[in-house]
Amino acid sequence: MLGQLARPGTIVVADFEAGLGTVMRLDGRPVDVVVVVVEPTAKSLEVGRRAADLVRESGLGRLVISANRVRDEDDAARVAAAFPGLDLLLVPDDPAILAAERSGVAPLDAAPEAPGVRALVSLAKGLLGPAGA
Protein backbone atom coordinates (compact mmCIF):
# COMPACT_ATOMS: atom_id res chain seq x y z
CA MET A 1 0.00 0.00 0.00
CA LEU A 2 2.77 2.42 0.93
CA GLY A 3 4.49 1.17 -2.21
CA GLN A 4 1.44 1.80 -4.36
CA LEU A 5 1.25 5.37 -3.19
CA ALA A 6 4.86 6.24 -3.78
CA ARG A 7 5.50 8.06 -7.03
CA PRO A 8 8.88 9.13 -8.27
CA GLY A 9 9.68 12.46 -6.65
CA THR A 10 6.85 12.20 -4.14
CA ILE A 11 7.50 12.02 -0.43
CA VAL A 12 5.17 9.90 1.66
CA VAL A 13 5.03 10.60 5.39
CA ALA A 14 3.08 7.92 7.24
CA ASP A 15 1.95 8.70 10.79
CA PHE A 16 1.66 5.20 12.15
CA GLU A 17 -0.73 3.74 14.65
CA ALA A 18 0.56 3.96 18.21
CA GLY A 19 2.61 0.96 19.25
CA LEU A 20 4.34 -1.52 17.03
CA GLY A 21 1.68 -3.73 15.48
CA THR A 22 1.73 -2.16 12.07
CA VAL A 23 5.48 -1.68 12.04
CA MET A 24 5.82 -5.43 12.37
CA ARG A 25 3.56 -5.92 9.39
CA LEU A 26 5.80 -3.71 7.27
CA ASP A 27 8.01 -6.77 7.08
CA GLY A 28 9.39 -7.17 3.58
CA ARG A 29 8.07 -3.80 2.43
CA PRO A 30 10.78 -1.50 3.63
CA VAL A 31 10.54 2.25 3.80
CA ASP A 32 13.46 4.62 3.36
CA VAL A 33 13.40 6.11 6.84
CA VAL A 34 11.77 5.14 10.12
CA VAL A 35 11.52 7.98 12.61
CA VAL A 36 10.99 6.59 16.12
CA VAL A 37 9.47 9.33 18.26
CA VAL A 38 10.01 9.13 22.01
CA GLU A 39 9.67 11.22 25.15
CA PRO A 40 12.20 10.94 27.98
CA THR A 41 9.80 8.87 30.11
CA ALA A 42 10.57 5.29 31.08
CA LYS A 43 7.51 3.95 29.23
CA SER A 44 8.09 5.86 26.05
CA LEU A 45 11.80 4.97 25.93
CA GLU A 46 10.95 1.31 26.47
CA VAL A 47 8.48 1.34 23.57
CA GLY A 48 10.98 3.27 21.44
CA ARG A 49 13.76 0.82 22.21
CA ARG A 50 11.59 -2.07 21.04
CA ALA A 51 10.67 -0.21 17.89
CA ALA A 52 14.31 0.55 17.17
CA ASP A 53 15.34 -3.09 17.72
CA LEU A 54 12.63 -4.21 15.36
CA VAL A 55 13.59 -1.74 12.67
CA ARG A 56 17.24 -2.74 12.89
CA GLU A 57 16.61 -6.49 12.99
CA SER A 58 14.33 -6.43 10.01
CA GLY A 59 16.29 -3.84 8.06
CA LEU A 60 13.21 -1.72 7.44
CA GLY A 61 15.11 1.43 6.64
CA ARG A 62 17.34 4.14 8.01
CA LEU A 63 16.58 4.66 11.68
CA VAL A 64 16.29 8.09 13.28
CA ILE A 65 15.33 8.64 16.92
CA SER A 66 13.52 11.88 17.59
CA ALA A 67 13.24 12.66 21.30
CA ASN A 68 10.62 15.24 22.23
CA ARG A 69 10.17 17.27 25.37
CA VAL A 70 13.81 17.16 26.38
CA ARG A 71 14.03 19.53 29.34
CA ASP A 72 17.54 19.19 30.68
CA GLU A 73 20.80 17.26 30.71
CA ASP A 74 19.18 14.43 32.67
CA ASP A 75 16.55 13.98 29.97
CA ALA A 76 19.21 14.04 27.25
CA ALA A 77 21.23 11.45 29.15
CA ARG A 78 18.18 9.18 29.54
CA VAL A 79 17.57 9.27 25.81
CA ALA A 80 21.22 8.71 24.92
CA ALA A 81 21.43 5.75 27.31
CA ALA A 82 18.40 4.12 25.69
CA PHE A 83 19.75 4.40 22.14
CA PRO A 84 23.53 4.06 22.21
CA GLY A 85 25.18 4.74 18.88
CA LEU A 86 22.00 5.74 17.06
CA ASP A 87 21.13 8.83 15.09
CA LEU A 88 19.52 11.08 17.71
CA LEU A 89 17.58 14.30 17.40
CA LEU A 90 16.88 16.07 20.68
CA VAL A 91 13.83 18.32 20.47
CA PRO A 92 13.71 20.77 23.38
CA ASP A 93 10.60 20.85 25.56
CA ASP A 94 8.77 23.76 24.01
CA PRO A 95 5.73 25.47 25.54
CA ALA A 96 4.88 26.81 22.08
CA ILE A 97 4.21 23.28 20.79
CA LEU A 98 2.09 22.50 23.83
CA ALA A 99 0.14 25.72 23.33
CA ALA A 100 -0.42 24.92 19.64
CA GLU A 101 -1.66 21.45 20.54
CA ARG A 102 -3.99 22.88 23.14
CA SER A 103 -5.53 25.31 20.69
CA GLY A 104 -5.70 22.84 17.81
CA VAL A 105 -3.49 24.71 15.35
CA ALA A 106 -0.41 23.62 13.42
CA PRO A 107 2.82 24.31 15.32
CA LEU A 108 4.33 25.53 12.03
CA ASP A 109 1.63 28.21 11.82
CA ALA A 110 1.51 29.10 15.50
CA ALA A 111 5.20 29.20 16.30
CA PRO A 112 7.47 28.62 13.32
CA GLU A 113 10.47 30.05 15.14
CA ALA A 114 10.02 28.13 18.40
CA PRO A 115 13.06 25.96 19.17
CA GLY A 116 11.06 22.72 19.20
CA VAL A 117 9.54 23.45 15.79
CA ARG A 118 12.88 24.50 14.34
CA ALA A 119 14.44 21.22 15.47
CA LEU A 120 11.79 19.27 13.56
CA VAL A 121 12.20 21.46 10.49
CA SER A 122 15.92 20.76 10.58
CA LEU A 123 15.18 17.02 10.75
CA ALA A 124 13.06 17.34 7.60
CA LYS A 125 15.75 19.29 5.77
CA GLY A 126 18.37 16.80 6.90
CA LEU A 127 16.32 13.92 5.50
CA LEU A 128 16.13 15.67 2.15
CA GLY A 129 19.90 15.75 2.12
CA PRO A 130 22.27 18.54 1.14
CA ALA A 131 21.16 18.45 -2.49
CA GLY A 132 17.50 18.33 -1.52
CA ALA A 133 17.41 14.87 -3.06
Binding site: I11, V37, L108, L120
Partner: peptide
Protein backbone atom coordinates in the same frame (compact mmCIF):
# COMPACT_ATOMS: atom_id res chain seq x y z
CA UNK B 1 11.06 8.68 -0.40
CA UNK B 2 8.88 6.89 2.14
CA UNK B 3 9.08 7.82 5.79
CA UNK B 4 7.36 5.95 8.62
CA UNK B 5 6.85 7.79 11.91
CA UNK B 6 6.28 5.48 14.87
CA UNK B 7 6.18 5.63 18.67
CA UNK B 8 4.02 5.41 21.75
CA UNK B 9 0.74 7.31 21.69
CA UNK B 10 1.13 10.83 22.98
CA UNK B 11 4.88 10.97 22.36
CA UNK B 12 4.54 13.68 19.70
CA UNK B 13 4.40 11.34 16.70
CA UNK B 14 1.66 13.31 15.00
CA UNK B 15 3.28 16.70 15.58
CA UNK B 16 6.51 15.33 14.15
CA UNK B 17 4.76 13.89 11.07
CA UNK B 18 2.99 17.18 10.44
CA UNK B 19 6.08 19.37 10.65
CA UNK B 20 8.03 16.95 8.43
CA UNK B 21 5.30 16.80 5.79
CA UNK B 22 4.79 20.56 5.60
CA UNK B 23 8.52 21.25 5.53
CA UNK B 24 8.97 18.84 2.60
CA UNK B 25 6.11 20.56 0.78
CA UNK B 26 7.62 23.99 1.49
CA UNK B 27 10.85 22.73 -0.04
CA UNK B 28 8.89 22.17 -3.22
Amino acid sequence: MKIAVVGKGGSGKTTTSAVLARTFARQG
